[in-house]
Amino acid sequence: MNGILRMVSLTGEAAFSVGRGSARFLRNFYRYCTLTGKTFSRGYLVYKNPDLTLVQMFGLGIESLGLVTVIAIFLGTETVIQAVYQMSGIIPMRYLGVLVCKTTITELAPVITGMVVAGRVATGIAAEIGSMKTTEQLDAMQVLRLDPIRYLIVPRTIACIVMLPVLVVWAVFVDFMSSIVTVILSVDITMHTYLSGLRLFFAPIDLFVGIFKTMVFGAIIALTGAHYGFEAKAGAEGVGEATTKAVIVSAILILIFDFSIAVLVL
């Protein structure tokens, strides 16, 4: 009898915790959508304070350049090594460039760069907004009639939307350069053959899809960071939790949107 009662009690607790988790998820989803709507509806005001956006473009974009370069160098090298391994004895090596070109432009460069920038930028935004909240700076903005979304979130979102494609184009360039060096040093084909392969099935649409994806990723990174910054609880622990959630959720959202765009466009 006690066992049955215990089972009923545990089932009830589990159902209650699932219900509470769902309610929390829905509340977060609603707030995230509201923040997104408010940010884009105030986007046109960016021309009034261009300096705020330029500062963010420098901070979020240019300062990520070193990190993105290092990642792209290894990405190019690794792509060639993996492609050679997979193609050996099955596909002629003159198609190596095709594989590297397609995977880099449409998938690897946008997604990996997005993830790396999310790790750096989404956490930064969440920490900054979160500490502004805990030190009452957001309240101060509100009482001074300075809309935090307009002055804080819009510049960061636009900076991410503009700068992430720039970083991805740079990453693609570095990626190709490092892949060329890897091919020269370790693969038994000429550079001319490899470059011909790179050009063989290159379609501009791939590049446009890659850039469009990264613009979406840029918005995801900024808005996720901002959302968790606004939701941060007081204290160092609250801000730490917000940054962790920001990077996890932005990575997941990048993968979900990458999949959705691939299904819709390709």
């Binding site: 500490s131 502004m132 030190t135 009452e136 700076q137 309240d139 101060a140 903005m141 009482v143 001074l144 009639r145 300075l146």
Partner: peptide, 29 residues
């Protein structure tokens, strides 16, 4: 809101701006 002035507990100055910019921000906007 314009009729109220508020001093928060830790002053809530905007960290990314210097003192002059903190004071000028509401005036400029």
């Amino acid at each position: 809101r314009r009729r109220f002035g508020i001093l928060f507990q830790g002053a809530a100055l905007f960290d990314s701006m210097n003192v002059g910019e903190n004071l000028a921000f509401p005036l400029r906007e």
